[in-house]
Computed example of a mutant assay.
Amino acid sequence: MKRTLQLLICIVLITSCSKTDINNDHGFYYWRSKLNLTKNEQQALNNSKVPNLYTRFFDVVKEDNQFLEVGVISIDNDLSINKKIVPVIFITNETWFNIQPNEIELLANKVNDHINKIKANNKIDLASEIQIDSDWTTSTRNDYFKFLTTLKKVSKKNVTCTLRLHQIKDKLQTGIPPVEKMYLMCYATSSPLVNQVQNSILDVKTLKLYLKNLDEYPVKLDVALPIYSWGIVTNHVGKKKLINALTAEELLQNKNFRKIDEHHFEVLKDDFYFGMYLNKGFKIKVEEIPEKDILESMTFINEKLDYKPLLIYYHLDERFTKNYNTLFQ
């Protein structure tokens, strides 16, 4: 009887230790060109506790000294969601090169006007927040920071921005943006276009090295973690290209691909696949994110911070959300 009781205690302990309950409220980014949710995506969104859907509205690029909005989102006329929408604007770092003070104000007004135009044309409910995504550097930080301050002034909204791993690691060089809250992007831990064993989307060991001094960052953070995947194609001479949103399941269901091991496949027939022409013999490495890596990453971050950050998954797409049911319960 005593031995049986000890065995039961051990089983309970092992089970409780193997399941990490991070308990962070979660929400989603939306990063497709048209805002149109499937039934499963609608359900995943409705079940989330964060009151916002972080939605990419458009990108800003600079061509011939002109600021251009590209990839502007279209919105389904029948869209009905129980969340407010936070417009997310991606601005290339090149936009800040040699920008003049009057151009910073011009760009801030241009971005704000275009957000309001999308809102008016689609009658959507926007949150009182605008999020800016830009991979600023030491040389562009001052102009970028002025833009954030100017946009807040002209929009009369709370302006937030994203924070990449290298920007938190090298905060003395890259500077601290003048915002009240930022979104820490816990992915792209390495380049997918170089030869490596690690997962380039998220390698937990690398993430922890970047974030070892996370508790010293002076701005409140929420956290973005990846649930997307991609394929890294290598041709016969070692050149690499990406196929976004590719999954191992898709390759396993296609007889023109041979599984080499858990993450690697070989093309068996010349043809167009996933919008790209692939030759026989090309290799594909599929990078997907195990649920355990998300749990370990958030456990580490929670231990570093003295508050519970929101967890915003990148991004809302049923091809990915169906693989993480336990995270979204």
Rank of each mutant, 00 (worst) to 15 (best):
A108K: 02
S74M: 05
S80G: 05
E103H: 08
I91V: 12
E94D: 11
A44S: 08
P51E: 02
N47F: 01
D76M: 05
F97E: 03
N47S: 12
N52F: 15
K39N: 04
F58M: 15
N47G: 12
I85E: 14
L45P: 00
N52W: 09
L107A: 01
E105I: 12
K83G: 13
Y54G: 10
T95D: 00
L53F: 02
N93A: 11
T38N: 12
W96D: 08
P101L: 12
K49M: 11
N36Q: 09
Q43C: 03
V70H: 05
S80Y: 09
G71C: 06
I81A: 06
Q42R: 07
D78N: 13
N40T: 09
F57P: 15
G71N: 11
L79R: 01
V61M: 11
I81E: 03
D76Q: 12
L35Q: 02
G71V: 08
A108S: 14
I81S: 05
S74A: 14
A108V: 14
T55H: 08
F57S: 15
F58P: 14
R56Y: 15
V86Q: 04
W96C: 01
E105P: 08
Q66H: 04
E103M: 08
V50P: 01
I73H: 05
T92R: 01
N47Q: 10
I99R: 02
I104A: 01
V88A: 01
K62D: 03
R56L: 15
F97S: 13
T38G: 07
V60Q: 00
F97I: 10
A108W: 08
I81V: 00
L37S: 01
N77S: 09
T92Y: 06
N46T: 06
S80Q: 11
A108C: 11
N93G: 09
I85M: 07
R56S: 11
E69L: 09
W96I: 02
V72K: 15
N47D: 11
N52G: 08
I85H: 09
N46C: 05
T38Y: 05
L35I: 15
I99L: 01
N109C: 10
S48C: 01
K83H: 03
N36I: 08
I75L: 05
K83D: 11
V60S: 00
P87W: 07
L53D: 02
F97N: 14
Q66M: 12
L107H: 09
Q43K: 09
I104V: 15
N46V: 00
S80N: 08
L79P: 00
A44E: 00
Q100K: 15
D64V: 09
V61E: 14
D59I: 10
N77P: 00
N77G: 13
T55N: 06
L107I: 04
Q66N: 08
L107K: 02
N36W: 03
E63C: 13
N82W: 03
S80E: 13
E41D: 09
I104Y: 03
S80C: 10
F57Q: 10
V61A: 03
G71D: 12
E105T: 15
N40H: 07
L107Y: 10
K34W: 05
I99V: 04
V72S: 13
V50T: 08
S80D: 09
I73S: 06
L68M: 07
I75T: 05
Q66L: 10
P87T: 05
K62T: 13
N102L: 11
K83Q: 10
N47Y: 00
E105R: 14
I73V: 11
N52I: 07
L37T: 05
F58S: 13
R56C: 13
